[in-house]
Design a protein around this nucleic acid. Structure first.
Lengths: 137, 137
DNA sequence: GTTTTAAATGCAACCAAGTTGCATTTGTTA
DNA sequence: TAACAAATGCAACTTGGTTGCATTTAAAAC
């Protein structure tokens, strides 16, 4: 299994993912390495719909691994409008914008919300994104 | 129909709802008056689950009227975590907090988010609410 | 290197919030 | 009061996500 990963994604990268999983006591499997590789390469949060076209994987496996990653603290999840869950590797906390016109999802780094006494997880802003506003969609 | 409303909710209130609907060219029905009365009385956004225990109404009728009210601009909607849509009468724009521990929904008036070029609809903040943080839930 | 065993995967059946089609009822207008 | 368009209720459907279970796979023991 490791050999095929090496040929696909390069040695260094695989080692990082493997050591991350091992550090979190999560078994290293083909599916998990492929998922983390794809999430790492993505510049935006992704949903199962987007992933299934690029990795052959049952949705049960996908969602179960997302839960595993989330519980290990290496992944953030949120829901767009219309019931779809989006996932991204967890780095600096930031908000997300979901466009109700084009369904696009963007990371928003520029806002900072404080709510004393509350523990803030994810922030989702719905509306029309800049492109759709400009295009009058 | 109007008589029963009067006895239940009082004359003035019914007249306000009726005139609101007429102004928006929405037909005045028993279901709509009951829904708007309940939404007006609620201090928080409500979902179908909460409403069906208090008004006998098919869910198709409920959701269709929510769409009607939303399109008329008298209602705001957003989704909690776990796929449920919440509705509230549309007054001053504000954010909502959804607690992932107790599933409670709160209005947050104190934050103000600006995103130049974007058109912001609803803002949903997920996390643990003050009560749950204090209780260590 | 082989065996063992606990966990991960894939499949299919399931779940539930929300939607749709259609026959019946209700509100409005003539 | 009659006629018509719109609203309602019911039941069937849609769909993103979950669950149960038999099979496969990774990692530890030998």
């Amino acid at each position: 299994m490791r050999l095929s990963c090496i040929s696909n994604f390069g040695y260094t990268f695989v080692m990082n993912i493997e050591s991350l999983l091992k550090k979190k006591n999560i078994k290293v499997t083909t599916a998990r390495v492929a998922l983390l590789k794809l999430l790492e390469a993505a510049s935006k949060p992704v949903c199962y719909e987007e992933i299934k076209g690029r990795i052959a994987m049952d949705k049960a496996t996908f969602y179960r691994n997302m839960i595993t990653f989330e519980e290990a603290g290496i992944l953030n999840a949120f829901e767009s409008h219309s019931k779809m869950r989006y996932f991204e590797l967890g780095h600096t906390p930031h908000a997300h914008f979901v466009c109700t016109a084009c369904n696009g999802v963007e990371c928003i780094e520029s806002i900072d919300v404080q709510l004393p006494g509350y523990e803030i997880g994810t922030i989702v802003i719905h509306g029309r994104c800049r492109s759709c506003v400009e295009a009058g969609v």
